[in-house]
Design a protein around this nucleic acid. Structure first.
Length: 418
RNA sequence: GGAGAGGUGGCCGAGCUGGUUUAAGGCGUACGCCUGCUAAGCGUAUGUAGGGGAAACUCUACCGAGGGUUCGAAUCCCUCCUUCUCCGCCA
């Protein structure tokens, strides 16, 4: 949610920001409604004031045993007029809220304008592996342990099923990543894998992503599309002390995505599936320090790839590639040797106070004073399927065996998977 | 799923036989006083949102959410959400 004061003061900036994100918004209609609402508000407050005065007079007269019929009549008249005006106000409030829910966050000034092609490669790390044989894609290397047909029989197409070493590798990676995070002081969270509409609205999956989520209609719940939802919502409607900041959290969750309309697009193997596992990092930060925190989360996530020896690059996303709620976002992409391309494995975003406004997440400044909105950030650390793709394809050897990085070999109980 | 009891300001907690409650009191917090420092003590201030004003200030709303009764609702009625206790079912 954007600040109403900002909407009034700089409507053009808001409109341009929406255009930069390819969102259509009608700021003119909002401005008209808002100004009509304020006019109405003045009238209502004046009327309420009068009614309260009459009402008090009734009270005083009755106490002293006088007749209060005149005041009762006047108060009743004000009241009946009020109920009409109040229902108008109510309707205007709803209209404004519905509009505001659909206004995207404003990109930071250092975010390049334009679509995907304007993304900037900020850094690249590691050597793209060379092979003296033709490297194979992961679905060939995992033939015995990755069974999409079985998953299809159980749940439908584009779900996945691992068995044997693939299942163990996934579990090992989740555990290894959580340890990596908690060693730096993040608190590990285990949260629900479903969330209510209010929670989805707070982190801004709703209203825009409604079609991309699985909904449990009978209970009015959604399966979470990312751990960001339950972990960030841990602090919805909460008031923190400044000394509590930053709040540094991490947690494992599965992520459910309908991927409506993306069939046949890069969805072979593990590239794009309806349920995948992910470890997420979430941070609530003082507004003055969210930029540093953003860099820190990026470097922290990238640190895992260094330990695993996976070549990666970091993109600064252009405005058109930014999500609805993000002000600025880094994507980390890792190399897939069997498909010869980069795969997005982490999105690390700063939402500034956008989610905090929707979810009413505040902190009280150290010297006292009015509560202020926190800044929220999050980033994958990391998404499992693509990480597994990269480990397997990059570590493959001529005989089809897979060499594991030393960071994992002890936990997996072997240096080479055969 | 059944029965019962709750949901009040950052927290705890009174009010709930409708009108001096503009929500008591406590804790916490801030500032001041006092003590050689600390603790304790004393005093003052301190909810959120929106509107008006240059400003001290002032007005309106908000007691889980929404509706209703009434001149007037934290207080009465209805619906829903949610927490707890007991019972049932179940991993």
């Amino acid at each position: 949610m954007l600040d109403r004061k900002l909407l009034r003061k700089e409507p053009r900036r808001v409109a341009e920001a929406a255009r930069a994100k390819n969102e259509k918004i009608d700021i003119e209609q909002w401005l008209e409604t808002d100004s009509a609402r304020r006019t109405l508000m003045l009238e209502i407050e004046e009327l309420r004031k009068q009614r309260n005065l009459f009402s008090k007079a009734v009270s005083a007269k009755k106490r002293s045993g006088e007749n209060a019929n005149a005041e009762v009549t006047q108060s009743r008249e004000a009241g009946s007029r009020l109920s009409i005006l109040e229902s108008n106000l109510n309707e205007m409030d709803n209209r404004l809220y519905e509009m505001e829910k659909n206004f995207p966050n404003i990109p930071d000034s250092d975010v390049p304008l334009g679509g995907e092609e304007k993304n900037i490669v900020l850094q690249t790390w590691g050597e793209i592996p060379e092979f003296d044989f033709q490297p194979r894609p992961h679905w060939e290397l995992m033939e015995n342990v990755f069974q999409p047909e079985a998953a299809g029989r159980i749940a439908g197409s584009n779900f996945i099923l691992f068995r044997g070493w693939a299942a163990k590798l996934q579990r090992t990676l989740i555990s290894w990543m959580l340890d990596y995070h908690t060693e730096t002081g993040m608190e590990e969270i285990w949260a629900p894998f479903v969330a209510k509409p209010e929670s989805m609205t707070a982190t801004a999956q709703l209203p825009k992503m409604d079609d991309d989520m699985y909904r449990i209609g009978r209970d009015n719940l959604y399966l979470i599309p990312t751990g960001e939802v339950p972990i960030t919502n841990l602090y919805r409607d909460q008031l923190l002390e400044e000394a509590d900041l930053p709040v540094r959290l991490c947690g494992y969750t599965p992520c459910f995505r309908r991927e409506a309309g993306s069939y046949g697009k890069d969805n072979r193997g593990l590239n794009r599936v309806h349920q995948f596992e992910k470890v997420e990092m979430v941070r609530l930060e003082h507004p003055d320090r969210s930029d540093e925190a953003h860099e820190e989360l990026l470097n922290h996530a990238a640190g895992m790839l260094k330990l695993l020896g996976i070549p990666y690059r970091v993109l600064l996303l252009a405005s058109g590639d930014l999500s609805f709620a993000a002000a600025k976002c880094f994507d980390i992409e890792i190399w897939s040797a069997g498909q010869n391309k980069w795969l997005e494995v982490s999105s690390i975003a700063n939402f500034r106070d956008f989610q905090a406004r929707r979810g009413n997440m505040k902190y009280r400044p150290a010297g006292g004073g009015k509560p202020l909105f926190v800044h929220t950030l999050n980033g994958s650390g990391l998404a499992l399927p693509r990480l597994i793709i990269s480990l397997i394809e990059n570590g493959q050897q001529a005989d089809g065996s897979i060499k594991l990085p030393s960071a994992l070999s002890e936990r997996m109980g072997t240096e080479v998977i055969r």
